[in-house]
Design a protein around this nucleic acid. Structure first.
Lengths: 277, 277
DNA sequence: CATAAAATGAAACGAATATTCTGACCGCCA
DNA sequence: TGGCGGTCAGAATATTCGTTTCATTTTATG
């Protein structure tokens, strides 16, 4: 039965698995998902190990290899191993390719060059973030959120994704969140119930939405503790805030990747969750 | 006999071999030179294979392992294998750092430590992104978006911020965008008008929303060109898509920073804008 | 509902593996 | 020359491995 031979390299194998995934039966689908998620385990493990980690009997692993056209598990494993040996010395090749694409970034209207440009820009934005944010601000913000009954979030326009992400994570962690998105009325109506026992997280970058600024001023006036995430200490949501996170060098709205504020709000939410235990 | 344990990583092993090389006896020196020249063979081969290629009997290989402080060949082989997995997986370093910080969970609970952890995780996610996304896929996706009359976007739950960000940027660039958010009815009603002259960008990660999957299948069936951003080739929005961007190693929903997909959609939008001139 | 077909999992088989053991070999010094 | 410590290669062994088999369950089909 060794006549039939399956894919010969890892990419082909992935394609073959994805293609046949629907037609495979339950157990085999389960194995397909596992091997795509843990290719290294398959490359280095034994049948018994792979079987145990994926929660199936060993015979099912062999059946899976047969279904893909291999003569057995060992034959399929060779493909996974080829991925490992190919990846062991990628540094030179990858760097060469990267430098080439970065060179072309001057000419570079090609989408690949655009991507690598944004990636490197995001990298430096993250580096700047961890340097500019201090522990004192993080601690203060965490304390405010920990005491808050309801957490109000506002971020309009280009900052809306950041607000929705923070809302999502906080809700996952069991917090009561009011996301001010303005649907079905004004954000002022939505925030009417906010008191000094609650908290507001405001996110806004140039050009600042006047709605965000007005709402911020109103809640500050009512004594609501406020955390601002913005790009300047002179922004309309900086003065009066309990804590200000300043994220500098934000590009113009259409060119933002938002990675820095996304990372920050993530850390705020998780840090809050870890702190209250 | 497991008392003696040799070096635990490849660099230590190389140092140990170089150091003891003089004191080793003839056959063992011969083996030492071979394993330093062919580490991959040692990592993936059997004792018999390594013995044959290096021109020594199998028992000599085992004695060599013993001489280095290992309990046997298998134990030494683990070190050579660790070298392989370290080279292929860019997230290896990040996971290591994560485990370390989780070990130090006492310090790791401070918000500042949480932030730096997410930052470093985001860094490696970006590195993995630029390595896994190929120019071919970017070009194909750009071509689809360029031809589209209306661009439909769907991303629910944790992926919603990505969808809103893409919608924002595309609208800034003058594209006609329909963001399927389900407000005021089902997303199926909102997408009723989509035709093969339009395009759909679907974003979904584990656990996949069934609404996203259903909508995706429906529009694919209607012949609408589709770009999928997901975390597995086996995800419900992969099969039938015109282009699939696979972003691997996405953490569990509450711990995602979304930096990789955010960066990708940004590059897609800007790349589209530059390409149509 | 009855029957056939396919899929599944536990166990057993044979092959291949890493390791240990034994006797022979070599250089060294008295 | 004759013993001696260390090294060696090859056979012996116990273990582990991949694969197959088969009874049972599940699923599809009439």
């Amino acid at each position: 039965m060794n006549k039939a031979s399956g894919p010969t390299n890892y990419d082909e194998l992935r394609g073959a698995i994805a293609q046949r995934h629907r037609t495979l039966s339950g157990r085999l689908q389960q194995i397909a998902e596992f091997v795509l998620d843990h290719p290294t385990d398959v490359a280095l493990g034994t049948v018994a190990e792979v079987a145990q980690r994926s929660g199936v009997p060993p015979s099912a692993i062999v059946r899976f290899a047969h279904a893909l056209g291999f003569g057995g598990f060992t034959e399929m494993q060779q493909v996974f191993r080829s991925r490992l040996v190919a990846g062991v010395a990628p540094s030179y090749k990858a760097r060469l390719a990267r430098m080439k694409s970065e060179e072309k970034s001057v000419l570079g209207r090609q989408p690949a060059a655009v991507l690598s440009r944004f990636v490197s820009e995001a990298q430096s934005a993250l580096a700047a973030l961890s340097q500019s944010v201090h522990a004192r601000e993080l601690d203060a913000a965490t304390a405010i959120l920990a005491k808050a009954r309801d957490i109000y979030l506002v971020g309009l326009g280009g900052s809306f994704p950041v607000a929705t992400h923070l809302a999502y994570v906080l809700r996952k962690l069991g917090r009561r969140v009011v996301l001010l998105d303005g649907t079905g009325g004004s954000i002022h109506e939505q925030s009417h119930a906010a008191t000094r026992d609650d908290a507001l997280v405001a996110i806004s970058f140039r050009n600042y939405y006047t709605d965000t600024a007005r709402l911020f001023a109103e809640l500050v006036g009512r004594g609501v503790p406020t955390i601002s995430i913005t790009d300047s200490l002179l922004s309309p949501i900086a003065e009066g805030a309990s804590v200000v996170f300043e994220i500098q060098d934000m590009p113009e709205p259409a060119l933002r990747t938002l990675v820095a504020p996304m990372c920050l709000v993530q850390a705020l939410a998780i840090g809050l969750d870890l702190a209250v235990d």
